[in-house]
Simulated assay, not measured.
Amino acid sequence: MFGKKKKKSFFDKIKELFGGGVQGEEFFEDFEDLLIEADFGAALAVEIVKEIKDSWKSKKIGSLDEFREAMWNILERDLKVAPLEIVDGQLNLVLVLGVNGVGKTTSIAKMAHYYKKELKDSILLSAGDTFRAAAIEQLQYHGEKLGVRVVAQQHGADPGAVIFDTLDMALARNTKLVIADTAGRMHNKANLVKELQKINKIIQKKAPSAVYKKYLVIDSTTGQNGYRQAEIFNEAVGLDGVILSKYDSTAKGGAAVGISKKLGIPFVFMGLGEKYDDFIPFDKNKFLSGIFDK
């Protein structure tokens, strides 16, 4: 019985392309195609190829190891990371955004678990996705398992009212961290802006001194779709960071680099599996090792 054939990594393909060494213009055209295939996007691919080509011309790259090191350094430089630091003595509020199916609710639960070690009982979850079937129940289930209180209303309720109630309770209890879910419908941009602007207004009015962050959850396997989601949400409300869910070594890493480089948005966390502990601050080395399969 034959084993399952291992899928070629991004760097496996570079190795094949590289062959006996850099072979001139044809190599760079093929390399650009490979970057686009790996979801770096056309504009970013052109920039990376130019930088690598300049290094080749100036004799800084000759071997495959030098090529790999140059690529690693470029991607490490372009990836931005900004950890969520809890500011003591203030309410810290994280509004979590994302389309349905990206792992938004589970990412919220994992984030609560991550900070529970530090903040104990001073965490509130807000069930602001009142539209998706079972979203409220799913968050309540996680809250019960984690021992974290969840503020919720009935299905179909006004998300703004849920946020309002959550902030009321958080301020009354001197809560340190609120993590709020939001609807994941990829509706048109005008409706998205209107809905999120309403929530923004409530937060700014009820808790003007809160340390307020807006994080987008994207599925690491979706490639350029993830980039487009980041673009839309960033234009709508301005993002402070991205949580990369469902990460594994086969992830299409190029889109993440594009989000950082082209949109200027840093990464905050990465989800590595199904368990609550499978959630860590974004680790550049782990991410890049996945791309280079090493």
Rank of each mutant, 00 (worst) to 15 (best):
S107V: 07
S107R: 03
I108C: 01
I108Y: 01
A109M: 08
M111N: 02
M111V: 04
Y114H: 12
Y115K: 04
Y115G: 07
Y115R: 03
K117G: 14
E118K: 15
E118T: 15
K120S: 13
K120V: 11
I123C: 02
I123R: 00
I123W: 00
L124N: 02
L124V: 11
L124H: 01
L125F: 04
S126Q: 00
A127L: 09
A127K: 03
D129C: 09
D129H: 06
D129Y: 07
D129N: 07
T130F: 08
T130S: 08
F131H: 07
R132D: 09
R132A: 10
A133T: 14
A134C: 11
A135H: 04
A135W: 07
A135S: 12
I136F: 11
I136N: 01
E137H: 04
E137N: 14
E137I: 13
Q138E: 12
Q138C: 12
L139A: 06
L139P: 01
L139N: 04
L139W: 03
Q140W: 02
Q140N: 15
Y141L: 11
H142D: 05
G143E: 08
G143Q: 10
E144T: 13
E144V: 10
E144H: 11
E144Q: 15
E144F: 06
K145C: 05
L146F: 09
G147Q: 10
V148W: 07
V148N: 08
R149W: 00
V151F: 05
V151L: 13
Q153N: 14
Q153H: 11
Q154C: 00
H155Q: 14
G156R: 03
G156L: 10
D158S: 07
G160L: 09
A161W: 04
V162N: 02
V162E: 01
I163G: 00
I163S: 00
I163L: 10
F164A: 04
D165C: 11
T166S: 13
L167V: 12
L167H: 04
M169E: 15
M169K: 13
A170C: 11
A172I: 10
N174R: 13
T175C: 15
T175G: 09
K176A: 13
L177D: 05
L177W: 05
V178N: 02
V178T: 06
V178E: 07
I179C: 00
A180F: 04
T182Y: 01
T182M: 04
T182F: 01
T182R: 00
A183Y: 03
A183C: 03
A183H: 02
G184K: 02
G184R: 05
G184F: 08
G184H: 03
M186P: 00
M186K: 06
H187E: 14
H187P: 06
N188Q: 14
K189D: 14
A190W: 03
A190Y: 12
A190V: 14
N191S: 14
V193M: 15
K194A: 15
E195V: 10
L196C: 09
L196F: 09
L196N: 02
Q197F: 10
Q197I: 00
I199Y: 00
I199M: 12
N200R: 11
N200Q: 15
I202F: 06
I202R: 01
I203T: 05
Q204A: 14
